[in-house]
Design a protein around this nucleic acid. Structure first.
Length: 266
DNA sequence: CTTCTTACA
DNA sequence: TGTAAGCA
């Protein structure tokens, strides 16, 4: 209760260059105790000692955020230490951390959404389908926040939005979810191909030696750029394939006198 | 007095 | 990983 905001050296802005351990903990969303623990285990570089207190910099903040991300992805502290050691071997910190953050960062720019059961029901015609609910959870479309499944996190609201739209159009939920499952397998294959392709043609030049800061920054920029590129290509190719398939279906299943009408919609 | 450290749960 | 007590 007696915590007073630190009196000096802050402009009130997010990006500072000097932190006391307390400020650092708050900025990184962790605790002082954890910062110490990370330091003890060699995950966090030591602070600059200035008189009685320690001074931390932006690099420490960056590192803490990285550790938090890796922790969230299920890595252990020991595992993270191995990665960090391997990466920082013979290199500076800045660029490499940027690369890691880029690779491990969120892959959609959407904000996760949060729904209670009633919200969910409202979105799907006011009825609840226990089977579909279970399938949605299994596929990760919904993440239950409690054992009772009273509220859910929606990591990818767009997917739920599509499901709601399809449902409104009369598509059964089981069909939507089954389709998502098989679609996902195909998409994962595409992602594998793309990453392999990138590794071969874009990142090959970095192979075989320790990355310099410049190279790491460059690689981080490439990663940032490649994701939207992949999405664009997939989007364009999917549109083309959809048109081709629709035409094929039209030719085989639709009576000739209706083709012109439907073709106009494509 | 405040901050850091240590040790214990 | 939180907390309490001792140290600088």
């Amino acid at each position: 209760m007696t915590r007073v905001p630190s009196p000096r050296t802050d402009s009130g802005l997010e990006r500072r260059t000097q932190y006391r351990i307390d400020d650092l903990a708050q900025a990184a969303g962790t605790t002082v105790r954890n910062i110490r623990a990370y330091q003890d285990r060699g995950l966090l570089p030591p602070a600059e000692r200035r008189g009685r207190s320690n001074v931390y910099g932006p690099a420490h903040l960056q590192r803490l955020r990285l550790i938090a991300q890796l922790l969230n992805r299920g890595h252990t502290l020991a595992g993270i230490k191995e990665l960090l050691d391997a990466w920082s071997d013979g290199r500076g910190l800045g660029g490499v951390l940027g690369l890691v953050a880029e690779v491990t960062g969120p892959w959609t720019d959407e904000l996760p959404e949060r729904l209670c059961r009633a919200d969910l029901r409202a979105r799907f015609g006011g009825v609840e389908d226990a089977e579909a609910l279970a399938a949605a959870v299994r596929l990760g479309v919904l993440e239950p926040e409690s054992e009772a499944w009273e509220s859910f996190l929606v990591p990818n609201p767009a997917v739920l939005g599509v499901a709601a739209r399809l449902f409104a159009l009369g598509v059964p939920l089981q069909a939507c979810l089954g389709h998502l499952e098989s679609l996902r397998a195909d998409v994962e294959g595409m992602a594998r191909d793309f990453v392999e392709f990138s590794a071969l043609h874009v990142f090959a030049r970095y192979a075989g030696h320790a990355l310099t800061d410049e190279e790491a920054a460059e690689a981080a920029a490439s990663v940032r750029e490649l994701r939207p590129l992949a999405q664009q290509v997939v989007n364009a190719e999917l549109a083309r394939a959809l048109r081709a398939e629709a035409v094929r279906l039209l030719d085989s299943a639709v009576p000739p006198h209706l083709r012109d009408v439907l073709a106009r919609e494509l």
